[in-house]
């Protein structure tokens, strides 16, 4: 299985634009071995292996229906795997604090309570006392420099504000891993650009391991430390290149020749996988 060795294979690493040298020392956070998932249409994942590095931002990109979202749903335990093991620093999921941001913020937030209560909800589930909950939400708001009236109900906020509230709800528990499933695809372009910056800031501040599913290659590369390029079903790792651009990144990053080259490389692999159909 190409996927089984793909992550560490020197040949593939060399194919990445740069940064292969530091990889051997990179600590692994999520270890996936032998992951198998069948849907009615056949295997989405068949004996799939992957190592997600700790404290890095990984973007997942691939052809339509290859199982990008399925991958993070399997890792986050939203859907059960048929076989395989997934460990977070050696621990199983139930001993790991994770955050998950859904594409459909409208249906993910609770409309019956205020934005503030939405953010505090996971702390309530964890039986954190009320004063401590308030302190932690306040700290997060200050930390991210959020300027939303959190006393409002979610449906009174704009799309971007609602998604920001979902991200805060996922972050308030200080998760070890944050999963984001196409979080900005329901937003207009202006808001998407703004939210990318917000997310980059959150990552720079917290250095939480993040796994983002994106259907926008530029966004995937721009935000990531590594881009996981998947093949068609059953998904294998087509490539997993480093994105060595320094942070914080900005609009200039987008026109940086190294960035353009890397994006071109990813596009080429994507096209190759699409044509395989």
């Amino acid at each position: 299985m190409a996927a089984a060795t793909g992550v560490q294979a020197p040949g593939l690493a060399a194919a990445a634009a740069a940064g292969a040298a530091g990889r051997a020392a990179e600590p692994v956070h999520i270890t996936i071995r032998g992951l198998t998932k069948h849907f009615q249409g056949g295997a989405v994942y068949d004996n799939f292996d992957l190592d997600v590095p700790r404290g890095k931002f990984v973007s997942v990109f691939g052809p339509n229906g290859c199982g990008k979202s399925t991958l993070i749903n399997l890792i986050a335990g939203l859907i059960p795997a048929d076989a395989g093991t997934i460990l977070f620093g050696g621990k199983p999921l139930r001993e790991t604090k994770i955050g998950y941001v859904f594409q459909n913020y409208r249906e993910a937030l609770f409309p019956w309570v205020s934005a503030w209560s939405n953010i505090e909800y996971p702390l309530k589930l964890a039986k954190v006392p009320a004063p401590e909950r308030a302190r932690r939400v306040d700290r997060l708001v200050a930390h991210l420099g959020v300027k939303i009236d959190l006393k409002r109900y979610p449906y009174e906020l704009s799309g971007g504000q609602q998604q920001l509230v979902s991200i805060m709800r996922a972050l308030v528990v200080d998760p070890e891993v944050l999963f984001l499933d196409e979080p900005f695809s329901a937003l207009d372009y202006e808001m998407t650009l703004f939210m990318r910056e917000q997310l980059q800031r959150v990552f720079n501040e917290t250095r939480t391991t993040m796994v983002l599913v994106s259907h926008d290659l530029e966004e995937a590369v721009y935000l990531a430390d590594r881009v996981l390029l998947l093949s068609r079903r059953p998904a294998t790792i087509a490539d997993f290149p480093d994105v060595p651009m320094p942070r914080p990144r900005s609009d200039e990053t987008l026109s940086d020749p190294a960035f353009v080259l890397l994006k071109g490389h990813c596009l080429e692999i994507f096209q190759r996988e699409v044509r395989k159909a």
């Binding site: 986050a76 939203l78 859904f102 249906e107 993910a108 937030l109 996971p122 964890a126």
Partner: peptide, 21 residues
């Protein structure tokens, strides 16, 4: 809404909390 149930589940809500909350 299925997403809302999943959101509660992924935040660590038990089956009972998903029902009541």
């Amino acid at each position: 809404r299925k997403t809302r149930l999943l959101a509660a589940k992924v935040m660590g809500a038990t089956r009972f909390r998903v029902l009541t909350d």
